[in-house]
């Protein structure tokens, strides 16, 4: 474990923090200033991420900021596009349909499964504050 800590690339974390934070600031400004609902902002982010991924631009941000670029929802879009392109390379046309979801399967399945589990166990509560 000490090996792990001594190998930490602090600059990587700094850029991760800044890029992730700035992506959130942009969304916050959109929500506050344009009255876009959160659902629309999420859709916008995933679409922009997928398009930038398709154009090969988003990859540079991922190389630069790591999780700062992949954890925000633009990263989810990028991952979908990346998967589609890679699958097209491997299997041809049908890859466009299989690659995206295959690459993001873990995230989608986890959200659905955990959502279902939470609905079994937990109950919504009023926001007192």
């Amino acid at each position: 474990m000490s090996d792990f800590f001594s190998n930490i690339d602090w600059m990587q974390y700094l850029w991760c923090f800044i890029v992730g934070g700035v992506l959130c600031i942009i969304a916050q400004i959109l929500i506050d200033k344009t009255k876009l609902t959160p659902a629309r902002v999420l859709v916008l982010y995933v679409t922009v991420g997928a398009v930038l991924g398709g154009l090969g631009i988003y990859k540079y941000l991922v190389d630069f900021a790591g999780a700062g670029a992949t954890v925000p929802l633009t990263g989810f879009g990028y991952n979908l596009s990346k998967g589609a392109i890679e699958a097209v390379k491997e299997t041809g046309f049908i890859g466009a349909f299989t690659g995206g979801v295959k690459a993001s399967a873990g995230g989608i399945a986890a959200a659905v499964f955990f959502g279902y589990i939470a609905s079994l166990i937990a109950k919504p509560k009023i926001k007192k504050q």
């Binding site: 929500i31 506050d32 959160p38 919504p124 509560k125 009023i126 926001k127």
Partner: peptide
């Protein structure tokens, strides 16, 4: 009822959204 009104008109209660300063709170 705040919760039934939120559910019908706005969002699920546990959704982590911010309420704008102009919004109002449905009386239960």
């Amino acid at each position: 009822h705040f919760c039934s009104a939120e559910k019908q008109f706005r969002f699920p209660l546990e959704l982590g959204n911010q309420r704008p300063p102009t919004s109002q709170w449905t009386v239960t």
